[in-house]
Simulated scan of single mutants.
Amino acid sequence: MTTAATPKLKTSAMIASFVDPGQKTVSAPFGHALVKAASADDRIVGLSADLSKYTDMHIFAKQFPERFFQMGMAEQLLFGAAAGMAQTGLIPFASTYSVFAARRAYDFLCLDVAEPNLNVNIVGGLPGLTTGYGPSHQATEDIAIFRGMPNLAIVDPCDSVDIEQAVPQLAASEGPTYLRLLRGQVATVLDEYDYTFELGKAKELRAGNDVVFITSGLMTMRALQAADRLAAHHVDVGVVHTPTIKPFDAETVLAQVNTPRLAVTLENHTVIGGLFETVAAAMARTGIGKRVVPIALPDEFLHAGALPTLHQRYGLSTDRIVERVLEELG
């Protein structure tokens, strides 16, 4: 007896969406939200480092060509120019890949943007493990790099709802922000949970008596999926979404963590310097002594490959989350 061969993954799977087949999505929510915000405020301008199509900035560029600036493959110039525009009273949104913003242009962001506390909004594409192209494009340590930068707010949205609601709030904030962008066909998840994005606030999406998930970014979607799956194992899971990593809503999160439940953090980022360590530091400062289980990427340069395979390999898939929780509960 022979078995059918497993279909060979095509190269396109390496940049495939992490959205499940049949899931509700919105196309380019960032680009459309920026157009809407710019229609109401003519101070908003857009810039990109030759990546407008790949960060959904092209939506804005088409609508407002006179307010869009293509800076070429020069991230330092991108953020230096954005800083100068902010000094004149404009509100720049500057997009590139997260790896280039964090690794290549850190000094320019720090000295030109963050130190004078300018309203420059950095839009980072491909954050965490959202591409299979390997270490050159996987921004798995971007939050760790940026958390130490004074004045910079860090937003890790779950879905289209988060992005659409975050954009006008970022534009209205006084200082600089960094948005971990989800681009293309972006899942719509939070519309079912009576949720509203508020910069600097965490929100409980689901109550549960046995386990509490503290999550950010696309992992909130996976956490909600895992919570549904775990209910079949008679495990009652609560989910707390933390879209703003900095400033961190310690009051809300610690109230959820400081219970007898198993506490688990979930993030699309290395276990070093991200959500897990943000939660752990807040617990230590307030004297909460309990174990928190991190579900995060390992402290290493990750392999290249098909995105679904990588998520399974590194523990971000729904299957792996369910397995880990059941193991922890014994």
Rank of each mutant, 00 (worst) to 15 (best):
S17E: 13
K53N: 15
L51M: 12
S52Q: 11
Q76A: 10
L9S: 10
V35P: 15
A40R: 08
K24R: 15
D20R: 11
D56L: 04
M57D: 07
A82V: 01
F68P: 03
D42Q: 11
G72F: 00
A16R: 14
A28M: 13
L9N: 13
L47R: 04
D50G: 04
F79A: 15
F69A: 10
M71D: 12
H58M: 10
S48T: 09
K36A: 02
F30L: 10
A40F: 11
Q70G: 01
V26F: 07
H58W: 08
R67Y: 02
A33F: 11
K53S: 14
F79V: 15
L9F: 13
P65W: 05
S12N: 07
V35R: 05
G46M: 05
A74R: 03
P65L: 06
L77H: 10
G72A: 00
I59Q: 13
R67N: 03
A40C: 07
A13C: 09
S52V: 11
I15Y: 10
G84K: 07
G31V: 12
K36Q: 02
K8E: 08
P29T: 14
G31H: 12
T11E: 13
V19N: 15
S12T: 09
F93Q: 11
D42T: 12
A81I: 14
T25K: 04
L47K: 05
G72I: 00
A86H: 03
L90E: 04
S27I: 15
S39G: 04
D20M: 05
D41Q: 02
S39I: 01
G80P: 00
L77R: 08
K24F: 08
A28T: 11
E75R: 05
I59K: 14
L9I: 08
G80F: 00
A38S: 00
V26R: 07
K36E: 02
K62F: 08
A82G: 02
L78V: 00
G72R: 00
S27H: 15
P65C: 06
F60Q: 08
Y54W: 12
K8D: 06
P29I: 15
R67W: 03
Y54E: 11
I44E: 05
A83E: 01
T11A: 09
V26C: 05
S52H: 10
A28P: 06
L90M: 05
Q63V: 09
I15K: 13
A38F: 00
F68V: 02
L90K: 07
M14V: 07
L78D: 01
I91D: 05
P65K: 08
F30T: 06
E75Y: 03
P65Y: 05
P92S: 04
V45P: 00
A37R: 11
F93C: 10
M85C: 01
G89D: 04
I15F: 09
L34Q: 06
I15W: 08
P29A: 13
K36S: 01
G84R: 07
